[in-house]
């Protein structure tokens, strides 16, 4: 796999060409190409086995078996996951968890780290008193805010959200999505939003890609896909919504 820094279209923050991905030799993603414009939200929607999560992991380079052309601006991408309990180290306090990415970025001064963390907490609407707690003392929504904070502390403009709200309560989902949209405007972020929930995708995406069994079935703007689906499978998916 090659990573060239120069994106072909300067409006894009992410370009993927001919991505194929495998687990233990078995192919799960077939020849997927997509692009995400700066400041936009691209929704990847599909059922289980559609390969949507795998695409996310390949782009973030946290899996091994894939090939294709992936170009990301500044080579900087972060990811937030579905299972908030799994995404935070259960044996570390929140403060440590938030300091770690800063330490890795070379912020050696403890005061500087604490100050960055403090302003980030305000951005994601978390109380400072949570810093001395462990992940399982927090609610699902609070944990996801911590995960968002971790992603943002690393100053990436491209964030991949892999079913980031699927494990949350409905009212909490709503809060987190609103937060993510606000942060997008405030900080100029771009999201690759992966979900099986068609309704959420319709609420936040600019463009949508429908996946089935590792292949792209249909691509288009939200309006096109939801109001004017062309493919049978897309229609079937929309029809299955209650």
């Amino acid at each position: 796999m090659e990573k060239e820094n120069k994106l072909k279209d300067p409006r894009n923050i992410l370009e993927v060409e001919n991505l194929n991905a495998f687990y233990n030799g078995k192919q799960y993603v077939y020849d997927v190409s997509l692009s995400l414009k700066r400041g936009q939200v691209l929704g990847l929607v599909g059922e289980s086995g559609s390969g949507k999560s795998t695409i996310g992991k390949a782009i973030a380079d946290i899996m091994k078996e894939y090939n294709g052309n992936i170009r990301i601006e500044d080579d900087s991408v972060q990811m937030i996951f579905q299972n908030t309990l799994d995404a935070l180290n259960p044996k570390k306090k929140i403060l440590w968890i938030l300091e770690e990415p800063l330490k890795m970025m070379g912020v050696k001064n403890k005061e500087e780290r604490l100050s960055k963390i403090a302003s980030m907490l305000i951005k994601v609407n978390l109380d400072e008193e949570l810093l001395c707690r462990y992940p399982d003392d927090l609610s699902g929504g609070q944990r996801q805010r911590v995960c968002i904070a971790i992603a943002l502390l690393q100053e990436s403009k491209l964030i991949i959200a892999d079913e980031a709200t699927s494990a949350l309560d409905v009212t909490v989902q709503d809060n987190i999505l609103s937060l993510m949209m606000n942060l997008k405007k405030e900080m100029g972020l771009s999201y690759l939003f992966i979900s099986h929930d068609l309704e959420i995708i319709s609420q936040i995406s600019d463009e949508v890609i429908v996946l089935k069994n590792g292949r792209i079935v249909e691509k288009g703007t939200v309006e096109n896909i939801y109001d004017n689906p062309k493919e049978e499978y897309t229609k079937k998916l929309l029809d299955a919504c209650l």
């Binding site: 992991k57 973030a60 946290i62 991408v77 972060q78 990811m79 996951f81 299972n83 799994d86 995404a87 935070l88 180290n89 259960p90 770690e100 990415p101 890795m104 995960c147 971790i150 690393q154």
Partner: peptide
């Protein structure tokens, strides 16, 4: 996932 997260942090 927290290990994946650490990898993303370049740990």
């Amino acid at each position: 996932d927290f290990v994946k997260s650490a990898k993303l942090m370049k740990v």
